[in-house]
């Protein structure tokens, strides 16, 4: 073992688990992790559509005005609208007809956690929120779960400052609906996007998954700094031209 093991921390929050690995822990790291986990629980309390008393739930029911919410609520809704516009309506903050900005919030929370670690002086860390990953520094080796073989990896991405987000049906079934048709998206087993910032990368992964494979790959290929690996229910793999490394089975 040449290098020391990174400092690791896991936190159950937002209905999933956030995992942290910090390769350059310093005297401020523990306090930063405490601030981050407090912030994540606060984000959950404000934004969770599963908590009837969250600001988002009350806002959605018309019991709370937007300007009575935390300032971050308006900003999150603005970002949701931006992604919806950029993706031709394949993203929504009303997935089942009611206010639910979760498609943006988790990736954004991962990015905020990473930002807080950087503010505490870390230039070598990675943060995963339920499988959506932001790495800072590197090289980091990011395994991409194989959607068709539980427990196995489809590929491994190695790089610096990567954001890697995967949308798929392996964990929670066909839960992503095409906002334009209302039908569950079933053309892909999983879609993994590689970008640089996880908030956008994660939201784009959700939207592109709803587009289906052909449209998704064309849309991603046209966006600079974004690459994708699509795994079809048949096991067929398709990538954008710039996807790093060999992806063939």
């Amino acid at each position: 073992m040449s290098a020391a093991q990174p400092l690791r921390h896991t936190e159950h929050v937002m209905g999933t688990v956030f995992s942290f690995a910090v390769r350059d822990p310093g005297p401020g790291t523990a306090a930063a992790l405490e601030r981050i986990t407090a912030r994540l629980h606060r984000i959950d309390a404000v934004f969770s559509p599963y908590r009837p008393d969250s600001q988002v739930s009350r806002l959605g029911r018309g019991e709370l005005a937007l300007d009575a919410c935390d300032l971050e609520v308006a900003e999150v809704l603005r970002q949701c609208r931006r992604v919806a516009e950029e993706t031709g309506g394949h993203f929504t903050d009303h997935p089942a007809g009611r206010l639910d900005p979760s498609g943006w919030v988790k990736g954004w929370a991962v990015e905020e956690a990473s930002r807080e670690l950087r503010a505490a002086g870390s230039v070598q860390h990675c943060v995963s929120g339920g499988g959506d990953v932001q790495t800072v520094g590197g090289p980091w080796r990011v395994g991409v779960a194989d959607p068709l073989r539980p427990g196995a990896l489809a590929t491994v991405l190695t790089g610096h400052d990567l954001a890697v987000a995967t949308s798929g049906t392996a964990e929670r079934g066909a839960h992503i609906h095409d906002p334009r048709t209302g039908r569950p998206a079933t053309g892909l087993a999983s879609l993994t996007l590689v970008g640089s910032r996880i908030a956008d990368t994660d939201a784009y992964a959700t939207a592109a998954f709803a587009m289906g494979p052909d449209r998704a790959l064309a849309w991603i290929a046209a966006r600079p700094g974004l690459e994708a690996l699509a795994i079809l229910p048949t096991g067929e793999r398709r990538t954008t031209p710039g996807f790093p490394g060999p992806a063939a089975a």
């Binding site: 990011v142 990896l153 964990e171």
Partner: peptide
């Protein structure tokens, strides 16, 4: 170091 996959 880390795994990306469908949200668990």
């Amino acid at each position: 170091d880390v795994v990306s996959g469908a949200s668990y």
